[in-house]
Design a binder for these strands. Structure first.
Lengths: 254, 254
DNA sequence: CGATTCGTTGATCCCCATCAAATGGAGTGG
DNA sequence: CCACTCCATTTGATGGGGATCAACGAATCG
């Protein structure tokens, strides 16, 4: 660990392989991410084959899972927690490429090296597969491949939204869209009393939306002042006027 | 044609199916896009199966292939020409999501409806497959699926670059990156005498880079004034100083 | 040759970045 | 419980990069 000044990278001592194809319970059956894109490609009785190739491990908050430029040898499935993907320029400018959580998949790339870094935003648990193992699984279980294609398509759909936001939305629209998306993801749209919890800092949001943290903060303050939201604390948000928020997110695509 | 004010959409009279699995030469063998991601999933002797499910057609410059919101029933492979994908907000703001050309694939989405429009930038020829046919092909030919996954990954890699540019690069860096990328794509980096041809207008470039056409024009003019490029005509560019252009594209990711 | 579309250039404005400082909350130790 | 530190956040003041508004060339086409 620690060669060439890497940020704090997870130690492998935290790894422990899953109960495999032999005896033992198949831990995947009770996995919170059982319904994720990747794992839903398997029937229950096939899960032991998945488990045999997976290594489950946990990652402390702030630890780096992937450092941009690392050889792209593994893929990961998030079991629990939040992970952030980012790219940093040599002069420090950072762009966050996505906030990932339970069931999301990391590592879809054609490149030999990862073109992004991945870091735990909260304490997290993940499953690691090396590429070769994944390739074996795909050949043996046709459903998996379909799921991988679906994951890719979902990622593309999401990135297209982000591109539109970064290219053509104002700061206010970006922040409103972001809050709206997070609220939707956390089920706050259906239950107006449920409060939104933001695992990321204002700086993270800014780096995701192509803004500065000051602009994000000012915009959120304005939403509060205008009665669209309430904030019991800085990272807990209660949506008081979903319609109003949606309107400010506008730039509705036709 | 022309219901509910659609832009000029290609008429189906231009369609003509490919010689299929029966007798006849398999037109795919001599197709310029034979090596594209999709088609390289097939051995030569398997191509007739591909051809049987494909409909080749051409699309006049400016014609719309896909209108945002259309049911996502088909996928397309570009044989020849340039196609632009875009998304337009109700107030007219447009974001171009990609400039596609020979061998590129259109239609990777999870959604039931296309979330973007596609329009021919130049006279173009394409291959259409309905989703069901493609699904059949995937089941029968395992190589295809792998290719589709690779296409998805390539698209993601490309979109991540665009996200970084839109989120964190200055106008000058964006335009320099764009020219550099186009030059690379057209092989102008290896042969400095080869001139770059831009099929798109300044407005198109602007809508791709999240800028205005004036800013794009000014920036290109500055590059010319500084001796980085020469312009025999507005859409033909000769790169005089590739290093200089690369430097201005900077924001090199670590 | 008008008409139209595209590109260039100039003048001005404004949104958001930047710089700076105050506020607040969480943790720590006395 | 208070004093203190540390860091995230908020808020204010100012400036600049790129948008906007406007006018003028240049190329294409009927």
């Amino acid at each position: 660990m620690g060669e060439k000044g890497r940020p704090e990278v997870a130690g492998d001592e935290e790894l422990h392989p899953l109960p495999g194809a032999g005896t033992g319970k198949v831990v995947c059956l009770a996995c919170p991410a059982r319904d994720s894109f990747l794992c839903s490609g398997f029937e229950d009785d096939e899960l032991k084959h998945l488990a045999a190739r997976a290594t489950r491990f946990s990652l402390a908050r702030g630890k780096t899972l992937i450092l941009e430029g690392d050889p792209a040898d593994n893929v990961y499935n998030i079991i629990e927690g939040d992970v952030v993907l980012s790219r940093i320029a040599s002069d420090g400018r950072r762009q966050i490429l996505g906030f990932l959580s339970k069931g999301d998949f990391i590592g879809l790339t054609l490149s030999e090296e990862y073109s992004f870094s991945a870091e735990a935003l909260t304490e997290a648990r993940l499953c690691r597969f090396d590429r070769r193992s994944l390739e074996e699984l795909v050949e043996r279980f046709p459903g998996v491949d379909r799921q991988i294609r679906r994951m890719g398509a979902a990622t593309i759909d999401h990135l297209l939204d982000l591109v539109f936001a970064l290219g053509r939305k104002t700061a206010e629209e970006r922040v409103a869209s972001f809050l709206h998306h997070q609220a939707h993801k956390q089920g706050c749209c259906l239950d107006p009393t449920k409060e939104l919890r933001l695992a990321m800092t204002r700086a993270d949001i800014a780096d995701y939306l192509g803004l500065t943290l000051e602009t994000v903060s000012r915009t959120i303050s304005r939403f509060k002042r205008d009665g669209l939201i309430e904030m019991p604390s800085t990272n807990r948000i209660l949506i008081k006027d979903l319609d109003g928020l949606t309107q400010r997110a506008e730039a509705e695509t036709i």
